[in-house]
Design a protein around this nucleic acid. Structure first.
Lengths: 335, 335
DNA sequence: TAGTATTATGTAAGCGCTTTCATTTATAGC
DNA sequence: GCTATAAATGAAAGCGCTTACATAATACTA
C-alpha cells in the first residue's frame, strides 16, 4: 500500500502538501494540487484512516448501541443511522445491549474503548444517573427513545404519551367503553408513558382504567397471548384491547384466533409502533406510527451537528406519533 | 486520558514493559506486572485502540456488508456475527449494499478504507469476477450465502437447492400434483438454486414444471400478491404454491384472503427462510428453515480462525435447510 | 523599487502505541 | 566464586498521518 510519503515523492512536494490536498482546507495552488492528485491516482493511493485518526484524534466512527440487532424495530433504526453517516463518510460500529444493565454498560465501555467520536444509545436498563455520569466523560452521546431530564438536549424521542392517548382515543371514538390494556414492562419508561396516555384518553371520556383489564406483558408475542388469556380469565367484559406494541398485538391476534374469537367482530385490537409486519397480520393491524427510521436519522444528524460541527443541520428532538387505522379495529356494537 | 507513558512513569518501568503486560505475551516478572497493573488501575488507564492499531497494523475491526439493515433476515445475521466478535473483543463496522452493484462495490471500498482486518460480505449484485479480483487484494473476506467456485474456501452458504427440493417434496408427499412456483429474482443465485431444487423434486415424481404456473417475483410481499394474481389469471389449476421466500408467501396469503380464498383449504402455500414473522401469519406458514443466525456466527468464526489465527475453531461451510411444517399446507383433496 | 502583506510550500514534532535489538539482572553449573 | 545461559527490562525506531511554525515566493502599495 502506498503511503503519503511515496505520493509526495512522486509529486515532488512535501508530506504536508499532500496532506493538504487530501483535506482540501488550506489553499494549495491548482498546479501542485493537480500534480498531487495525479500522483495519488498513479499509485492507487488510499489514505490510512487509522493513521489519520491517530494524528487528528478523530476516529470518524460512531458507536451505536441498540437492544437487539434483529427484530423489526432496530433494523429500521440502524438503516436510518447508517444511511446518514455513510453519506457523511463516517462509519458505524454496532453493539447489542440486550436490555440488561450489565450488558448495556459493558457495550458502552466497549464502544468508548474503540475511540468513537460519539455514541448513539438506545438503552433501557442503565440508570439515569449512569447516563448523567457518562455525560461528564469525554465521549459525547445522544439518547434515542429515552428522556433524561438532566440531559434533555441529547434526547431524541417519541411522544409516547401522545401515542398511547391516540390509540385509546381512536377506540373511544369508535364507541368502545370497556377497553383492556396489555402493557409493556412497566420498568421501561416508554411502556409507562404509553399507559399514561391511555389513562388520559379514558379520563377525557370520564372513564378510568380498570385494574382487572390491565396486564403487564413483555413487549413480545408471548406477552400478547398470555395477556389475552389473563384478560379473558378475568371474566370482565371488554370490546377492545390496546397493546403497547405490535408484537404483543400480533400475539393477541393469534391467540384470539386459536381460541375461536374473531377480530374485530368479537373485539378490536390496537397495536403500537407500526413495524412492518403489522401490515401482514390478519386482520391488518390498526396501530400507531413510530417514525423510527427518521428518528435514527435524526440522531445521526445530531451527531453531525454537535460533534462534527455541521452547523447548518437542523435537529428535531421530539417526534409525534400518529394513528394508522387498518382492519383490527371496528366500531363497537351498540349496547 | 492517561497514556501508556504516564503509566510507565507511575510504575517506574519503561513503556515497553507496560506494553508487554497489556499484551501479556512476553514474560514479565510477577512483581513488575503487579506494579504496572496497579498503576493502570490508579490512573484509570485505557489503551488507545487507534494507536494500537497503527503500531500493530491490526485494527481489530471487521466490516460487514449486508443488503439491508432492516428486514427479518439481516437482523438475525448481524446478531450472530456481533455476538461472536464481541466475545472476542473485535468490533463490527456495518454498511448496507441495497442489492445494487454500484452500492455494493462502494460499500466494500468504504469498509476497506476503514482498515478492516477482514470483511464479511453478503453481496448479491457484484460479479464473481469482481470478487475474484478482490480476493487478490490484501483484505481477506468471507462470502455469506453465495457460492463462487473459485473462492469455495471462503463461502458459507445454505444448500438452497436442497431447500427448494424439500419444500416441493413436502407438497408432493401431501398428494399435490399441480404445484405453482413463485420465484425470487432469477438473476440471484439463491433464487435459481431454490427453483432447481423444486424441479428436481418434480422430476422424482415424473412431473415437470409448468411454465404457466411459474412467476418471477422480487422476494418481497408484493411479489407474492402479484404472483398469486398472475397464477390465478393463467386459469391453469393448481392446489399448492411454493414461494421462494417467506415475504412472498406472506404476500400470497394476504392476497388470497382478500380474493376470498382460504388457505390451505383452497390451496396450500409453502414459504422459505423461516423468518420470525412466519409464525405470526394466518395460517402459520409452513416453510424451510434457514439457520441464518448460525451462519452469521460461522462467518465470524471463519474470520477468527483465518485472520486471527484461532486455529482451534471449526468452521462449517455448507448448511442444510430443513422442513418446518405448520398450517399453510394441507393434504391434497383426492381428485 | 523597496517595503509590506499574502499566499504557497516545507520542516519537524508529535499522536500513543508495538516491537526489535541491546542491555542488565537473575539462575544454574561446575 | 566465576562463567555460560536464560529471563526481564529498557532504548529507540517506527506505524502513516496532521498541524503548528518557519520560510520562500508572489502580489500589492506608495
Amino acid at each position: 500500500m502506498a503511503t503519503i510519503y511515496q505520493v509526495s515523492e512522486l509529486a515532488g512536494v512535501s508530506l504536508a502538501t499532500v496532506s493538504r490536498v487530501m483535506n482540501n482546507n488550506v489553499r494549495v495552488s491548482e498546479a501542485t494540487r493537480n500534480k498531487v492528485l495525479q500522483a495519488m491516482e498513479q499509485l492507487g493511493y488510499r489514505p490510512n484512516s487509522i493513521a489519520q485518526s491517530l494524528a487528528s484524534s478523530r476516529s470518524n466512527s460512531i458507536g451505536i448501541l441498540v437492544s437487539e440487532l434483529h427484530g423489526p424495530f432496530y433494523g429500521e433504526m440502524l438503516t436510518g443511522i447508517e444511511a446518514e453517516f455513510r453519506a457523511a463518510g463516517k462509519h458505524v460500529i454496532i453493539a447489542a445491549g440486550h436490555s440488561e444493565r450489565a450488558t448495556e454498560e459493558d457495550g458502552i465501555d466497549f464502544l468508548r474503548s474503540r475511540n468513537c467520536d460519539a455514541l448513539i444509545l438506545h438503552v433501557e436498563a442503565v440508570s439515569d444517573q449512569f447516563l448523567v455520569d457518562l455525560s461528564k466523560k469525554e465521549t459525547p452521546f445522544v439518547l434515542l427513545n429515552r428522556q433524561v431530564p438532566a440531559l434533555a438536549d441529547r434526547c431524541i424521542s417519541l411522544d409516547n404519551e401522545l401515542g398511547g392517548y391516540l390509540a385509546t382515543r381512536h377506540l373511544l371514538e369508535q364507541g368502545h367503553r370497556n377497553i383492556a390494556y396489555i402493557a409493556g414492562p412497566m420498568w421501561k419508561a416508554d411502556a409507562r408513558d404509553r399507559f399514561h396516555g391511555h389513562q388520559r384518553a379514558l379520563t377525557e371520556y370520564q372513564l378510568s382504567a380498570d385494574d382487572a383489564l390491565f396486564f403487564e406483558g413483555d413487549f413480545r408475542e408471548t406477552g400478547g397471548s398470555k395477556g389475552l388469556d389473563a384478560l379473558l380469565a378475568s371474566s370482565r367484559p371488554f370490546s377492545a384491547i390496546v397493546c403497547a406494541n405490535d408484537e404483543m398485538a400480533s400475539g393477541a391476534l393469534t391467540a384470539a384466533r386459536e381460541l375461536g374469537y374473531e377480530v374485530p367482530a368479537d373485539f378490536s385490537v390496537m397495536g403500537f409502533d407500526n413495524v412492518n409486519f403489522a401490515y401482514y397480520t390478519y386482520p391488518k393491524l390498526s396501530t400507531i406510527n413510530y417514525p423510527v427510521s427518521a428518528m435514527g436519522q435524526m440522531a445521526a444528524r445530531w451527531v453531525l451537528k454537535q460533534v462534527y460541527q455541521q452547523s447548518s443541520i437542523d435537529v428535531q428532538q421530539i417526534f409525534n406519533p400518529h394513528l394508522i387505522p387498518r382492519d383490527s379495529v371496528a366500531a363497537a356494537t351498540v349496547t
